[in-house]
Amino acid sequence: MIRLSQLKGQRILTRDSAVQLGSVRRLLLDAAAGMVVAAELEGVIGDDTILDWSNVASIGPDAVMVESADVVRGAQSEAEKRLAAGELDLDGKLVLNEAGDALGPLEDLEFDEANGRLASIHVPGHALPVERLVALGPDAIIVPLPG
């Protein structure tokens, strides 16, 4: 398991040429599937800011390793463009349950780094186990009611 807070700012290094491609700025979630699908990078040269999660080779204490510079690409999908625009940022976003009760601002998020599967969302005082989200949008993260 790994947390969003552990990944933010981590540098991305290539295994084949030891080049630093940038560092992790945000994660892109597929809300309905409950999966981290990509990372958006900052500090890159050019427009290739999206790293698909499936292309992460290894996560060490000091760097996120990828095979080569070819694995990063430009933002293509609507969700990736919204991510790059900051609309889908997770940190501090209000977490609501689907009944309309606020659970607090998002403090952290935990997921399985091997497959991207979401494990829990952390709000002040609680870690909520979640398998999927109802929706992630510019104004809120909506989680299902437990049970």
């Binding site: 349950n97 689907e98 309309g100 009760d101 606020a102």
Partner: peptide, 10 residues
């Protein structure tokens, strides 16, 4: 209306 919550109307 889907739900009238304590903090939001869904």
């Amino acid at each position: 209306v889907q739900s009238i919550g304590r903090d939001a109307v869904m």
